[in-house]
Design a binder for these strands. Sequence first.
DNA 1: TCTCTATATTGACGAACTTCGATTTTTAGA
DNA 2: TCTAAAAATCGAAGTTCGTCAATATAGAGA
Lengths: 102, 102
Amino acid sequence: MVAATRLDRRDLAQRAEALAAVGDPVRLAMVTLLARHQALCVCEIQTAFDLGQPTISHHLKVLREVGLVTVERRGLWAYYSLRRDALSDLAQDLLTLARPQG
Amino acid sequence: MVAATRLDRRDLAQRAEALAAVGDPVRLAMVTLLARHQALCVCEIQTAFDLGQPTISHHLKVLREVGLVTVERRGLWAYYSLRRDALSDLAQDLLTLARPQG
DNA sequence: TCTCTATATTGACGAACTTCGATTTTTAGA
DNA sequence: TCTAAAAATCGAAGTTCGTCAATATAGAGA
């Protein structure tokens, strides 16, 4: 039996979920925004989008659930940060697939 | 004004579309399958999935429309190939985002 | 030309998704 | 304790998506 590939080992459905998360234009823009900062609170993130606060909150939840961002509460504010390691892992999996014999 | 980043230059919505394409578990499995072969016809691809032929055709069309696969007709058969360069570009964009100052 | 096979397209249906308005929860400060 | 502000949750509306059955298209061979 052939050795399991990277994408077999980590659950394919789980990877697809993460890719679908960044596959939404709003969430990809959020990730891009968070990539340029160490941490941003929801109200700061919201100013970058023409969307209601519940919608922003919803998208951040999706990103949180797939492990691409983390939250840290400070007083009234919730500071979101990009999990660069998780995003890097996702990218590496795609890179591996892209290579011959990936 | 700050220089445009990689993800600004290439249209963000277009990138999101490609990520959404591989964000479906069936299509990610298709890409994974195609990554292990040089080219596969639809009927060969279909044997790997418990889905009807129109559904397979639909998913391949989605992957084609975002530029992640190409088709080559040979007689009755349509041979699909992974566009490794396009997948690699997508992965590189995510990698760039994942890096500090991405 | 007729038939058979591989693939694509169409139309429909149910599920999932994005968004919003309204409400709730949580915390800080008066 | 009361109020104000930030964020999360809920419920609903409208849209998109995945899937299928049926049909159409295209090419090969008789």
